[in-house]
Design a protein around this nucleic acid. Sequence first.
DNA 1: TCAATATATCAATCAGTGTTGATGTATTGA
DNA 2: TCAATACATCAACACTGATTGATATATTGA
Lengths: 111, 111
Amino acid sequence: MPVKEQEKPVVLDRSLGIAASLGKSLSDENRLRILLSLCDGKKTVSAIVEEMGLSQPLVSHHLKELRRCLLVHVERKGLFVYYEIADTRVIDIIGQLACLATDLLSRRDSF
Amino acid sequence: MPVKEQEKPVVLDRSLGIAASLGKSLSDENRLRILLSLCDGKKTVSAIVEEMGLSQPLVSHHLKELRRCLLVHVERKGLFVYYEIADTRVIDIIGQLACLATDLLSRRDSF
DNA sequence: TCAATATATCAATCAGTGTTGATGTATTGA
DNA sequence: TCAATACATCAACACTGATTGATATATTGA
């Protein structure tokens, strides 16, 4: 499959490392679920725990990873800690990943 | 940060697993470099080895992972095995990942 | 100050993965 | 059939990361 000219962005060469780091954050289904859940707005850890059906330490662990990649913002209000999506573009990217993945799969299964 | 209504795609709930699987493939810098290198067109393993400066078994290993996620096509021609990108949308996604990552980083560093 | 709640961290386990060097396999040409 | 080349696989290692249960920390209200 020939690729259009200049399809490869040149500027990327230096940012591939951090791009891979972001990819790592998006490589776990629980983290993707958490990010999608935060589309509704900022939520407390306990709300996420209840919604995901995961243990509280596990949710904290994943939130820490999302924080490490700056994908979420944190805000403390009294007893509660609120997490929210830092940049909604990540939701677009997740959507494209899922769309591409299903396309690749269905394309293979149809042969 | 309030999020637009219906920003979260509903259909995704079932494809999050494979989306995460794709994310895992994009979580290694060497694999991203290989994918970008394949933008020039199909290449042999030895060509990729030389271009990347990685060992041949390591390149084969990463190509196997890209194959597992159906991100590349393989074609044997005599002694040589040619790899090519299966769907160029993955290049767009890598670009968006890198762009988002640099934005998030610069936004943090400016405070 | 104390009890209660929310969240983070710790310790431990287990599976997975990136990397390397050695070896195996497949294809071609002589 | 044999040698040479291209590629894949294997064995081993270190390292990371997901998960769990226990414990620590922080905040509030009494």
